[in-house]
Design a protein around this nucleic acid. Structure first.
Length: 600
DNA sequence: GCCGTTTTCGGCCCGACTGTTTTCAGTCG
């Protein structure tokens, strides 16, 4: 019995989604080792199931308890049954047997790039890799020349394994924030463009889909001379090494072990290249399965008619999708979340655009509100001026609430009165055509759900946001009750950065989202999409659930300086990935309509 | 093992790169 398996299953009925995903991938690997051909479709099924679990918005165990695990696409009766066994007893006989046959080192070794199940198994057996620190052990044995002595291995394989292990061990296991990925991609693109045979060039992959985080940087090039461009690419001055160099694709590594993949193709096939390398993987697989039923086989080269054997090339993505009988699908939607069906039926959403935004609903000015949290750096005057440049009709000043410590209720009321006066004074000093300042506040939801600001103080506001800044680890049920209590006050309109996540630093809180959304819908509360690239909160997949239910969303940059007001574009990306149209977002409303909405 | 706009049975994406191979297996995206 392997160590990993003991750790994941034997001692634990409460597996988290990432643990379940790892378990399912281990099962797929076990099938791959035992009989890759005979188990071909189990391998695919378990891998898909692992992906599905990883992308759930609730814990799989909660879904299982509601009896809805097989509603998840990719989870059928069999896998749901095995997982159910684990949730009930901490055991699955099926997994016990499958995984118990293999040394646990196998499941560690496959985490190293370039080492798959087959190779991991051979290492474990033939080199007697330790189950304790398998990766370190393999590195030692490779450095001792043991790998190159194995059949089918040579010096190059050995060197590559050592290299990959070194990088794996030092690589920070986190994905880049989108703005960083775009910045890096632009630097590389600047270099590639120096080759004069480049006709078109774009950053593709998850960056083009505007995912909140990006792993590898993918770039596509249309060129009359792919080989020459790829050669030039591998000479990028900042590259730490060339991972691979081919006639169609090449990959390099940047400092920090960031991989950049380049796909180069002739201009007449640019449309299919864009499509292929933009992904997502799941979108492409779904699109290819869909096309196969029409006897069409898709690849980055074009569309092959399987009946006639002829290949058609497409210079644009629009033509490519059209040839499949589909509307062009915006990259943000390409996640296999129903976009192919919608495109076929002409029912793709008209996703909200940045130009439609008429206000920013979370900004912190430099007004000294005597808060225990952080204060903004820009004056109200500067904020109005910046809002004017952005063609906004209104913005909400939402400083953190004054601290309770050291302030009586009357003190807090005085501070808020003072702020209200200040806003009125500023408003009267600027042209009437300038954007309106709403008097808002970002109020903590205390651990018990109470607000640290009295009703009399809240009365001074136009409206307020509430958010969690403490006690992130309450149970799902307690956290949900807390939030609903916090949202209940009539002056509260917005639930700000609702999961509280900080990407790569803090997981979000556990909440019963269906209940939160139902409450918001019923009581005319709005859920924020926070535009801070570190937050992007509500996350895209939850935005889609909110949109499906008709819950209204608000967008705020959470700017603490006027420059931060430019961050709205990141919130737009999240909204688009969540299929939001302009009517789903409150700050696409004109000032008049927005004020009406506030009264509801 | 999963799934369904023709299917509850009969399908299941597609190609690139590398190393060690004389024709391919393994891995990756």
């Amino acid at each position: 019995m392997g160590i990993l398996y003991n750790m994941l299953v034997k001692s634990n009925k409460n597996l988290t989604n990432p643990e379940i995903a790892e378990l399912l991938r281990s099962v797929a690997a076990a099938y791959q080792i035992s009989d890759p051909n005979g188990n071909r479709f189990q391998i695919i099924a378990y891998s898909k199931a692992a992906d599905a679990i990883e992308h759930l918005s609730s814990e799989a165990k909660d879904i299982w308890e509601e009896g809805k695990l097989t509603d998840v696409s990719g989870i059928g009766g069999s896998i749901a049954g095995h997982l159910g066994d684990i949730f009930k007893t901490g055991h699955s006989k099926h997994f016990d047997q499958l995984l118990g046959e293999l040394p646990s080192s196998v499941f560690e070794l496959i985490k190293v790039p370039g080492i798959g199940p087959k190779t991991a198994f051979r290492f474990a057996h033939e080199l007697h890799i330790s189950n304790r620190k398998p990766i370190e052990d393999l590195k030692k044995k490779a450095e001792g020349g043991m790998v190159s002595k194995m059949e089918g291995m040579g010096d190059k394989s050995e060197d590559e394994i050592i290299q990959n292990i070194k990088e794996y061990l030092q690589k920070p296991q986190e994905r880049m924030l989108l703005p960083r990925a775009l910045e890096l991609a632009n630097e590389v693109i600047g270099w590639i463009k120096k080759d004069d045979s480049v006709k078109q060039i774009e950053q593709l992959g998850s960056a083009r889909r505007r995912a909140s985080t990006v792993g590898d940087i993918d770039i596509g090039v249309a060129t009359t001379n792919p080989k020459k461009v790829l050669e030039h690419f591998t000479k990028y001055p900042n590259a730490t090494r060339v991972i691979e160099k081919g006639d169609v694709t090449s990959s390099i590594l940047l400092p920090g072990n960031i991989q950049v993949d380049l796909l180069a193709i002739k201009p007449d096939a640019w449309g299919s290249t864009l499509q292929h390398f933009t992904g997502s993987k799941h979108h492409n697989i779904a699109l290819r399965e869909f096309s196969l039923k029409k006897n069409l086989s898709l690849s980055e080269k074009g569309i092959k008619n399987l009946k006639t054997g002829t290949m058609h090339k497409y210079a644009t993505e629009e033509e490519f999708y059209k040839a499949l009988g589909l509307e062009w699908i915006p990259p943000e939607l390409r996640e296999d979340m129903g976009e192919i069906k919608a495109a076929r039926e002409g029912k793709l959403p008209k996703v909200v655009q940045l130009e439609e935004i008429k206000g920013d609903l979370q900004i912190h000015s430099d007004f000294d509100i005597e808060t225990s949290h952080d204060v903004g750096a820009s004056s109200m005057e500067d904020i109005i001026s910046k809002a004017g440049e952005l063609n906004y009709e209104y913005v909400a000043l939402t400083e953190h609430n004054p601290s309770q410590k050291g302030h009586s209720e009357k003190d807090i009321i005085d501070i808020l009165k003072h702020k209200k006066d200040k806003i009125e004074q500023v408003m009267s000093s600027v042209k009437s055509s300038m954007p309106k300042l709403f008097n808002g506040l970002e109020v903590d939801i205390l651990p018990d759900g109470k607000l640290p600001v009295s009703d009399n103080a809240l009365e001074l506001l136009d409206f307020c946001l509430v958010s969690i800044h403490s006690s992130f680890t309450q149970s799902r049920k307690a956290q949900t009750e807390r939030v609903l209590r916090g949202l209940d006050h009539p002056k509260v309109k917005i639930f700000a950065h609702p999961t509280g996540r900080r990407i790569n630093h803090r997981e979000g809180v556990e909440l019963d989202w269906p209940r939160i959304f139902e409450f918001a819908l019923k009581n005319n509360k709005w859920i924020e999409i926070n535009a801070d690239p570190m937050r992007l909160d509500l996350p895209d997949f939850l935005v889609k659930e909110a949109v499906d239910k008709g819950v209204l969303l608000s967008m705020g940059t959470d700017a603490h300086h006027v420059d931060g007001m430019d961050n709205m574009e990141w919130a737009i990306d999240v909204a688009q990935r969540g299929w939001a149209e302009s009517q789903n977002i409150v700050n696409t409303r004109s000032l008049k309509e927005f004020e009406k909405l506030l009264q509801l």
